[in-house]
């Protein structure tokens, strides 16, 4: 008998005498206080976890902010999903695919954001290395892609999943050394969400 059959047989035999238990339905995220508007909620949660959020009234303003910001860096790893108008931004050179670890800053685009957890949903179609290897990560967030509840965001992206979806809810941290918190252990130590 294969391991598969052995395991399934044992489980089936064991539950023959047991009653089926119904699934309780959707997780309600129950809270004592009413939730703030999605965008404010996201900014507050993401900031509390050590992330940075900058709001822009227009996409053009965001582009200008980014142009100035990038002057301090010497190489960029650009996510595949970043809008093409940023291509003509100038600034430091882009690193080639596979060389993301040599870039001093990564730029990526969030598929969605979640207020309840302060999370950015990072899609594999954008390139995972650009989201993970540079020490600083800048993430473009569309203001109308911010969900209040994680369950709603998962329900929305569920039918069209890439190979991997990463949820980034702040900079990389660890307290494994003597219970002292340090930032930027493996993933980016600085994460900036640019909302427009």
């Amino acid at each position: 008998m294969s391991a598969r059959e052995a395991i399934l047989d044992a489980l089936r035999r064991a539950r023959e005498q047991r009653e089926a238990v119904e699934h309780p339905g959707h997780f309600g995220g129950w809270r004592p206080d009413p939730s703030p508007p999605a965008l404010d909620g996201f900014a507050s949660m993401f900031t509390q976890a050590g992330g940075e959020v900058v709001h822009f009234a227009t996409v053009a303003q965001r582009r200008e902010w980014l142009r100035v910001f990038l002057l301090d860096y010497d190489s960029i790893s650009m996510g595949a999903g970043v809008p093409s108008d940023l291509e003509g931004l100038g600034g430091p050179p882009r690193v080639a695919l596979g060389k993301e670890h040599t870039a001093s800053v990564g730029i990526s685009r969030a598929r969605a954001a979640v207020a309840e957890t302060g999370s950015l949903l990072m899609d594999a179609r954008d390139g995972r290395r650009a989201q993970l290897l540079p020490p600083v990560l800048v993430v473009l967030v569309e203001a109308d892609s911010v969900y209040s509840a994680l369950a709603d965001a998962l329900e929305a992206v569920g039918p069209d999943m890439s190979a991997a979806l990463g949820m980034h809810s702040g900079p990389s941290k660890s307290a494994d050394i003597g219970q002292v918190m340090v930032k930027g252990v493996h993933g980016p130590g600085r994460v900036i969400a640019l909302v427009a």
Partner: peptide
């Protein structure tokens, strides 16, 4: 409120994705 990184993994890299593992194995362990 949530771990700083969550990975939701469906499978190997798809053709339109720039990177990611070419093979993904999941072992169901008893």
């Amino acid at each position: 409120p949530i771990g700083l990184f969550v990975s939701l993994i469906q499978g190997p890299r798809k053709s339109e994705e720039p990177d990611g593992p070419e093979e993904v194995h999941v072992v169901f362990v008893d």
